[in-house]
């Protein structure tokens, strides 16, 4: 018995010593981009700085929920990736911290505009335009014409072939709703959504699910961000990407430091590093085809060419605010989703 206690004590001390020896700087990193990109960012930052990174990947909605739940006692330090709206909402609620990075000069104007609209509590790291993609094989086997515009999707022959996410649960789908309102005007925009509703086969929960389903051949047309559609095409699925002729809305993927972060210094280091051209070039390694916010970063030739796409002047401040969002979603719930299909 005594022997046991001695061994135990010795091993405890050894353990304690090893723990103190290895105590290094650390960073808790909430990531809302795709898994492999998150992993790569975490690993590369570890290599670049020697700071230990704890990464959790969750969708932007989930992460926002978590940060909100943890508001009285923040666990995370920095939140990177995911569509801009939840970042803007977090800024609006004071869940994220003001920070002006020295890297700002290297960024595109839209990235800085995103920061300014949120009182410097967030910043743009990439952008992507809304559009849709279709499965070429299914389209052919069903003898359907190739769509090119938003209006095309209302044609009765596409009934049961179009999929989009539910705006209540997905940022992508909310961007679609807000874009339609801005392209066609509010009344016309809702008429469009009603017409679309008749052709929708399923409102998915996750934003990029429609194009993933299309890739696997479980759906014909998916309304998503174009870079998600490109990623499916590059992965080998028969997907054709469409930039709608009427013009389209876009998202700004964002990054924020969490208010009350336990490792604030490390979070700022990450923030500056993530805005650099080198770290933004990592996206290419994992087939992420968004447009990077650093002017010096490379873009893939497979990525949708932003200069060829007609982008609307998306009003992030208005359509990112909780009130407007709630109003549009409620209207959609009452006027559109209750219609028979």
């Amino acid at each position: 018995m005594k022997k046991h206690t001695t061994t135990l004590a010795v091993s405890m001390i050894a353990l304690a010593a090893s723990v103190t020896a290895s105590q290094a700087d650390k960073l808790t990193f909430y990531c809302s981009a795709q898994e492999d990109w998150c992993q790569l960012m975490a690993r590369s930052f570890e290599e670049a700085t020697g700071i230990d990174v704890n990464m959790t990947r969750k969708s932007s909605g989930e992460t926002f929920a978590q940060i909100r739940a943890e508001a009285t006692n923040p666990k995370g330090d920095v939140w990177w990736g995911g569509t801009g709206d939840p970042h803007l909402q977090a800024a609006e609620e004071g869940l994220t911290m003001e920070y002006v990075s020295p890297m700002r000069d290297e960024l595109h104007d839209w990235a800085i505009a995103q920061a300014e609209s949120a009182g410097n509590r967030t910043i743009g790291i990439y952008s992507g335009a809304l559009g849709y993609g279709y499965n070429t094989e299914l389209l052919a086997s069903n003898n359907l014409p190739e769509p090119a515009c938003w209006e095309d999707l209302l044609k009765p022959e596409y009934k049961g072939h179009v999929q989009m996410a539910n705006p209540n649960s997905s940022g992508t789908a909310y961007t679609t709703l807000a874009s339609m309102v801005q392209i066609f005007g509010e009344d016309e925009g809702f008429e469009f959504m009603k017409g679309l509703h008749a052709n929708i086969n399923q409102y998915t929960k996750s934003g990029s699910a429609p194009i993933r389903a299309a890739g696997r051949g479980e759906n014909t047309i998916g309304i998503v961000f174009m870079h998600d559609a490109v990623a499916q095409a590059v992965a080998g699925f028969p997907i054709q990407v469409v930039a709608p002729c009427e013009g389209t809305g876009y998202e700004i993927g964002s990054m924020s430091i969490i208010e009350g972060a336990r490792n604030e210094e490390e979070a700022k280091k990450f923030y500056d590093w993530a805005l650099s051209a080198d770290s933004q070039n990592l996206a290419l390694q994992v087939n992420a085809f968004q447009v990077p916010s650093n002017k010096g970063a490379q873009t893939s030739d497979k990525a949708p060419d932003m200069s060829m796409i007609k982008l609307i002047d998306y009003d992030f401040v208005k359509y990112g605010s909780s009130d407007e969002r709630k109003r549009l979603l409620q209207k959609w719930d009452e006027d559109v989703s209750t219609l028979p299909q």
């Binding site: 969708s59 539910n166 997905s170 929960k205």
Partner: peptide, 9 residues
């Protein structure tokens, strides 16, 4: 699940 994690939070 989606009431908690969705955009509606």
């Amino acid at each position: 699940f989606f009431a908690i994690v969705g955009a509606q939070y």
